[in-house]
């Protein structure tokens, strides 16, 4: 049976004496992976915007029937 290893939330956060090493690693993980996800999403939107601009430009210059 698994059980919570700390007697309080404060001790969990403190993770004595290694909290100052453990929590920054997970913070960095969130930052790097979250940053990658946001950056890729931004690039995707940029690609769509770029194609929309090209399509708009082409529709303006299309010869009218």
């Amino acid at each position: 049976m698994i059980e919570f290893q700390f007697d309080s939330l404060f001790n969990f956060l403190r993770m004595a004496p290694h909290g100052i090493y453990v929590w920054p690693v997970y913070g960095l993980g969130l930052l790097v992976i979250g940053g990658l996800a946001i950056w890729i999403r931004y690039q995707h939107r940029q690609a769509i915007r770029k194609i929309r601009r090209i399509m708009n430009r082409e529709s303006i210059h299309e010869p009218k029937a």
Binding site: F4, Q5, F6, F12, A16, H18, G19, V22, G29
Partner: peptide
């Protein structure tokens, strides 16, 4: 981070292993 036991040598610092 919360439910695995601490390591007998490294204490809580070993929890970095999970990342």
């Amino acid at each position: 981070l919360g439910f695995a036991p601490a390591d007998y040598q490294q204490g809580n610092s070993y929890r970095i292993i999970y990342l």
